[in-house]
Design a protein around this nucleic acid. Structure first.
Lengths: 159, 159
DNA sequence: GCACTCCTGACCAAGACAGTCAGGAAAGTC
DNA sequence: GACTTTCCTGACTGTCTTGGTCAGGAGTGC
């Protein structure tokens, strides 16, 4: 249930590409802008390329650019490219798991977890991200003060 | 962004405990009911105990039971006990990260991700789970057919 | 005192994570 | 055609996590 450095880096690099107006951007520039180790970033960009998120050209005037308009690439697209399926359970999609006994309805819960993740990640595009104009779903989620604290319920800590 | 075997096991074992009416349940019985390797499960139950989710007694009539009523233990409690904080980014809580340049608003997105996870995990109690009476938030999420498919947008796969 | 059950630490193999290193291959420039 | 630039790729590395297993110790109840 954590976001890897790789996924974080990937989204940040993609955001830089989304903000760049026309023309390829060098990997080095992306690395500097977002403070990401260059060689690691290159591997990430390569994965993004393999998944059709970005395109690239080598040579003097080379660099990377988005394969699609920034408002057609969601954060989910980027995360899936580098991390694989979102919210798998034991490396299996939640709907494919059979639960027995008293945990029979756990499958629905994991499916709901995935759906709720998607409701955020698939709604926010790179264009939204760089413009700071986040969709209503997101605005509502972050408008609640509780969302900004480390943990709301600490019942299990005290007893 | 995946649910570990450990977390899955923990919730399933907790569900069995929630369904057991009075009296300690042996680890072996939990392991059998949910098809979990016994020795691994014992470690998990120990962690749950350390976090005050379950209690235990040794000896002839020993076993495990929930420390609190099943309707006061959420799935979030159980998951946090074995996996730590939900939705950390690079092992750091999202609100603690400073983003620069064009990814400035990424923090809000990750906070929203965490909030949306919580909106599911903190709403579903063990009592809900075993009764199959999932809260409205969850019911609504799983009522949409898309929620049951592996991936909705595959744009990045084709081009 | 003995059986039962939890408790705990040590260990292990495989894989993920977060990179680094070295070199090759296209693209543009002169 | 040489040369520079930049991406492309595989190999490698050290540490941590995952998903367990093994062996033994410590309470509990009869």
């Amino acid at each position: 249930m954590r976001v890897s450095a790789k996924a974080d880096y990937a989204v940040r690099a993609a955001a830089e590409l989304a903000a760049a107006d026309e023309g390829p951007v060098k990997g080095e520039k992306l690395a500097e802008a977002q403070d990401i180790p260059l060689q690691f970033l290159e591997h990430i960009l390569l994965e993004l390329k393999h998944h059709g998120i970005v395109r690239a050209r080598r040579g003097a005037k080379g660099g990377y650019w988005l394969a699609r308009p920034a408002d057609e690439v969601t954060i989910a697209d980027v995360v899936r490219a580098v991390e694989g399926p979102i919210a798998d359970v034991q490396s299996t999609p939640p709907e494919a798991i059979e639960y027995r006994g008293n945990s029979e309805h756990l499958r629905e819960v994991w499916v709901a977890v995935r759906a709720s993740l998607r409701s955020v990640l698939e709604e926010v595009t790179l264009a939204n991200l760089v413009a700071g104009e986040l969709p209503p779903v997101v605005e509502e989620l972050i408008s609640q003060p509780d969302a900004w604290h480390a943990s709301t319920s600490t019942k299990e800590m005290t007893g």
